[in-house]
C-alpha cells in the first residue's frame, strides 16, 4: 500500500516537473523556433533571449544539484540518479556537434518539440515524428553493434576454451 502511494507521488511530481518545464519554455519564448533561430543567428538581428533563459535556469540548477550531490536518496526516497561518467570521448563531441547542426536547421530541440505538439502545430509534429524515428534508428544501430561485439567476444572465449 505504502509502495503504491510512493509510485503515485513519483508519477505526479514527474508530470508536474514536465508541466512547469513546458510552461517555462512557453513563457521564455523558447517554444517558438523563430526566437531560437534569432539567438543562433549572430550575423543577423541577434536576439540574446536564449542565453538569458539558460543562465537563469542554471542559477537555480546550481543550487538544486549541489544539494542533490550530497544525498543518495531523493525526498521521495528514490535513488539519486546522477550521471557518473567523466569520459570525454568521440561519442560526446561528435554527438554534440551533429545535434547543433540539426538544431540550427529548424530551431527545434527535443523538449520544445513536445510543447509544439501541445500547440497543435503540424510542423512541430513532423519534426517530433522524425526525431522519434531518429532515436529508433540509433537504438537499432546500437543493438546491432552490441550483438556484433558479443559475437566477437564469444568467438574469442570459444577459441581460448579449445586452446586449453
Amino acid at each position: 500500500m505504502k509502495k503504491n502511494l510512493g509510485q503515485i507521488y513519483s508519477l505526479f511530481f514527474s508530470a508536474l516537473a514536465g508541466l512547469i518545464f513546458g510552461l517555462g519554455l512557453v513563457l521564455a519564448g523558447m517554444a517558438n523556433p523563430a526566437k531560437v533561430l534569432a539567438f543562433l543567428d549572430l550575423a543577423g538581428l541577434w536576439n540574446p533571449s536564449l542565453a538569458i533563459v539558460m543562465g537563469s535556469a542554471i542559477c537555480i540548477g546550481l543550487v538544486a544539484f549541489s544539494i542533490a550531490k550530497k544525498h543518495t536518496r531523493s525526498l521521495l526516497g528514490l535513488p539519486m540518479n546522477l550521471p557518473t561518467s567523466r569520459i570525454i570521448d568521440q561519442r560526446l563531441v561528435l554527438g554534440g556537434l551533429a545535434f547543433g547542426v540539426g538544431w540550427g536547421l529548424s530551431g527545434i530541440c527535443p523538449a520544445p518539440a513536445f510543447v509544439l505538439l501541445g500547440f497543435g502545430s503540424i510542423k512541430g509534429a513532423i519534426f517530433l515524428g522524425f526525431m522519434l524515428i531518429g532515436m529508433g534508428i540509433y537504438e537499432l544501430i546500437e543493438s546491432y553493434r552490441n550483438l556484433e561485439k558479443s559475437k566477437t567476444s564469444a568467438a574469442i572465449t570459444n577459441a581460448k576454451k579449445s586452446e586449453s
Binding site: Y9, S10, F13, S14, L16, A17, G18, I20, F21, L23, G24, L25, V26, L27, A28, G29, M30, S49, L50, I52, V53, M54, G55, S56, A57, I58, C59, I60, G61, V63, A64, F65, I67, A68, R73, S74, L75, L76, L78, P79, M80, N81, L82, P83
Partner: peptide, 25 residues
Amino acid sequence: PWSAISGGVMLGIASALFILLNGRI
C-alpha cells in the same frame, strides 16, 4: 529579458523538483 528570466527560472525550478523529488535529471 523579463520573460526570458522568469521562463528560465521556471525551467530551473522544474529541473530542481525533478532531481530533488524524483532523483532524476
